[in-house]
Nucleic acid binder design. Structure first.
Lengths: 209, 209
DNA sequence: GCGTGGTAATTAAGTACTCACTTAATTCAT
DNA sequence: ATGAATTAAGTGAGTACTTAATTACCACGC
């Protein structure tokens, strides 16, 4: 009988459920307007409870923020889908998969990227917990893979870490232009085309002649 | 009998001078703590005047912000030092010079970069005035140069705009890691070394075999 | 040189409002 | 009926912005 799609009738949830709800709503708001730019009132309204509920679960707004970082830093690792290709040493596929994953994730949910930038800019100590747990894993994976390929003689003797940053930089900049600065690329530059250009540029740049 | 070296005796400045002072102080503060994170009180204190002075020159805090963007978007163009090398068609030197200029500027004064990110994140309409006036000039210059090199047969037939973004992306990511996320690179990766790796990777990737 | 009047720069002390956070009481599931 | 979830109604400390009065500067006539 319940309409189903309407906003949930105000019900009483368990502490755990409500807590998760608050974290989710706050993450979205912080990512849109920043920590300082979001009021506890707005968060409460988004959840559909009173402000007092927030402070039952988190003693300060700051602690709510920390809980968000905690939660988000446990998300699935961005390089996992590329592991199979890495096993086969299929360079192009490794890079392509990685780029697709980075771009796709940010496009379907820009929350994490925006939160990361906001906290870095606002100088939150927590920003580098996030940075370390997510970005450094990717650095390690890619630079490790490149080191192997250099050792195997497949790549020129580039610095593996710098090479990793170079590739990640291309992809990251693409994402930023699109999601942060809202710059639409010209029509002929589809996402797939852009990815292919990055991968080819990188591999030509790095492979032995 | 004036001490000479002390802070200027003049208590009272002309409107024009004071206005510039306020803009400068506000730019620094906004770039450090964001628009919403900076109070008019702090700005006034930084300048050493009362809050009422700010509102004499700018009717709202928002208008002060607009004045900053106005000012900053007139700064020297980032690609000017590379024009000479572009004239000689010295590809490596064009890219090297560009990268040095981007990194050097941001390192000596991160204000502009931070302001740009903050305003993009906070969704200020003004963010894209800044973006357009500064970043798009660079896009045009680099992609124009690459188009010429492709036409001359020196480069493979890559998409010139995507190629420009790829190079800018590498450099931008370097700057961001360093200035925004405070990640120190390992010792062997000096800035010059990093730049050289980017340039070589890019040119190998893009030149005809 | 020397007062002096006009004007622009400057401020002290507000105002109305919003913020993070609190308290004490109420509702509901079991 | 107990205890956890929940809220209405605060509180004091900021916040952007205002107002009315005060001060320093300087061109001008003497």
């Amino acid at each position: 009988m319940d309409g189903g799609t309407g906003p949930a009738r105000r019900v009483r949830l368990t502490g755990e459920e409500r807590r998760r709800q608050i974290i989710e709503a706050a993450a979205t708001l912080f990512s849109r307007k920043g920590f300082r730019g979001t009021t506890t009132r707005e968060i409460a309204e988004a959840v559909g409870v009173s402000e007092a509920m927030l402070f039952k679960h988190f003693v300060t707004k700051e602690e709510l923020y920390a809980a968000i970082i905690e939660t988000k830093s446990h998300a699935r690792r961005v390089m996992d889908p590329a592991l199979a290709a890495a096993e086969r040493e299929d360079d192009a596929e490794v890079l392509r998969t990685l780029a697709r994953e980075m771009i796709g994730r940010t496009r379907t949910d820009p929350t994490l990227m925006r939160l990361t930038f906001f906290s870095a800019l606002e100088g939150h100590a927590l920003s580098d917990i996030m940075f370390r747990s997510r970005v450094q894993q990717l650095d390690d994976f890619l630079s490790g893979y490149f080191a192997k390929r250099v050792a195997a003689g497949a790549f020129r003797p580039v610095d593996p870490l710098q090479a990793a940053w170079n590739f990640i930089g291309m992809v990251a900049y693409h994402v930023q232009r699109f999601e942060l600065f809202k710059q639409k690329p010209p029509e002929h530059l589809t996402t797939e085309r852009a990815i292919e250009e990055m991968v080819q540029l990188f591999l030509n740049g790095v492979r032995r002649a």
